[in-house]
Write a protein that binds this DNA or RNA. Structure first.
Lengths: 222, 222
DNA sequence: GGGTTAATTCACTAGTGAGTGAATGAACAA
DNA sequence: TTGTTCATTCACTCACTAGTGAATTAACCC
C-alpha cells in the first residue's frame, strides 16, 4: 500500500524547510561565520540543537542551503540552453545564447519570490569567496556554464578561446553583483535605478554583453 | 625644533602596518566574521590585546584596513580621469574614459605587490556584502565613480541615464569578480586563463565594456 | 490503549570571542 | 639617574560557540 505522507513526515519537511529558508536569509546577509546556529534557531522559534539533529553540523547546513536551489537554477538554464540550441540548429548567436542563460535566470529571481532573491544574494557572496566558495560554484555550475561556452564558441568560431572565457567571466561578475542586491546603484543613481529591479537588468544585460563579446573577438582582425 | 621620528615612533608605525597587512590578508580570505583578533595577533606574533590598544575595536580595524588603500586607488583614478578629460577636451570616448578608470586600477593591482592583491580580494567581498559593505563603497568611491559617469554621459549624450548607470553596474561587477581572484576561471578554462592575470583582463575589459555601452545606448534608436 | 518511533527540548561540556584594567619593561628626556 | 611615557603583555570577565547524549513529549500503528 502506498504510504500517504503522515503528519510526522509533513512536520519534518516543514520544519526543515523553515530552517533552510531562515538560514538562507541570514547567511545571505551576514555570511557563514556571521550567523550562529542559535540565530537561526531563534528566528525559526525552535531549540538550537534541533539544527544539529536535522543537518549534522553548521557547514552541512550551509551546503544544503546552497544546493537546494543550485540544482533548480542549473537544470532550468541547462534546459533553456538545450531548447535554444535545438531551435536554432547549428547557428546560435551570442545574444541568443546569453539570453537563454541570463534571462532564464533573471526571470527566476524576479518571479521566484523572496526565497530566490535571498538565494541570489547568497550565491553572489559565495562566488566571490576564495576559500571554499569557488569550489561550490564549480561543483554546481560547471556543466551549465560549459554548455553556454560551447554555444558561444559556435557563435564565434573565429574567436580565441581565452576571449570567450574572459567574456564569460565579465558576464558572471555582472550577474553576481546584480544578485547581491546591495543597494549601491540606488544611492549612486539618486534613486533612478533600483537594486532589485531585475527587469531593468534583463532588458540590458544580454545586449550589453553580446556586444562586448563581438568587439573583443573581432579586435584582432582590426 | 622638528622632531626626528624616534625609534619608538618607528616601531609603532611598523607594528601597526604589520597588523594592517596581516588583517588585510586574513579578512580578504575569510571575511570579517571569519577572522578573530587572536588569529591576527598570532600571525603577527604579538599579544592579541595589542590590537585593541592600537585600533580600538575589531570593526575599526577592518575599516582602517579598507580605508588605507581606498584613498590611494580613489585618488589615482580621479587623477587619471582628470588627466584624460583635460587631454581630450570636450569630447571623451566611452572606451577612453573606461581605460582611465579601469586600466589605472588594474595596473595598480598588477604592480602593487601582494598587499594590493589582497586588498583587491577584500574589496570584492565588501562590494557584495549587503550589510555594511555597500555603505563603505559609497563612502570611499562615490566621487570617483560619479566622475567616470560624468565622462560617460558626455561621451554618450543621447543615452538614457539609466542605461549608463546599469552599464557602470556591469563594469564594476566584472571588475570586482576579477579582483576577488577566486581561481574559478582557472579550472573552468582548464588552465587557459588565470585568475591572477590582470594583464589579460586589462587587455579586454575596456574594449568589451565600451561596446556594451554603445549597443545598449543605441538600441532604442533601432 | 500501549508499546514504538521520531521530533524536540534540556542540561551540559569544552572551548573561543572581544574587550578591560592593571602590571611590566624598555626607550626617552632632563 | 631618575621620573615619565608608551608599547606590550598578563590575568581576567562575561558572553557566546558548536556540539553531545539523555530526557521529554507527541504522533503513529496495531
Amino acid at each position: 500500500m502506498r504510504r500517504r505522507s503522515s503528519a510526522k513526515a509533513e512536520q519534518r519537511a516543514a520544519t526543515m524547510d523553515q530552517i533552510l529558508d531562515t538560514a538562507e536569509y541570514l547567511f545571505s546577509r551576514h555570511g557563514f561565520y556571521g550567523v550562529t546556529l542559535k540565530d537561526v534557531a531563534k528566528s525559526v522559534g525552535v531549540h538550537h540543537t534541533l539544527i544539529n539533529y536535522y543537518f549534522e553540523d553548521k557547514k552541512k547546513l550551509f551546503e544544503d542551503v546552497f544546493a537546494r536551489r543550485a540544482v533548480v537554477t542549473s537544470q532550468r538554464r541547462m534546459k533553456a540552453l538545450d531548447d535554444y540550441a535545438r531551435e536554432v540548429g547549428d547557428s546560435p548567436t551570442v545574444e541568443g545564447a546569453l539570453r537563454a542563460f541570463l534571462d532564464t535566470d533573471l526571470d527566476l529571481y524576479t518571479e521566484g519570490g523572496e526565497g530566490w532573491r535571498n538565494y541570489g544574494a547568497l550565491g553572489a557572496q559565495v562566488a566571490s569567496t576564495p576559500e571554499w566558495g569557488a569550489q561550490m560554484m564549480d561543483e554546481h555550475f560547471d556543466p551549465v556554464v560549459l554548455r553556454l561556452i560551447g554555444l558561444l564558441k559556435k557563435a564565434l568560431p573565429e574567436c580565441a578561446e581565452a576571449d570567450i572565457f574572459w567574456g564569460y567571466h565579465f558576464v558572471t561578475g555582472a550577474l553576481m553583483l546584480t544578485l547581491a542586491k546591495t543597494g549601491r546603484i540606488d544611492k549612486l543613481s539618486g534613486g533612478l535605478c533600483r537594486s532589485d529591479d531585475y527587469a531593468a537588468v534583463k532588458e540590458r544585460m544580454a545586449t550589453f554583453m553580446a556586444a562586448g563579446f563581438l568587439s573583443v573577438c573581432s579586435r584582432r582582425k582590426g
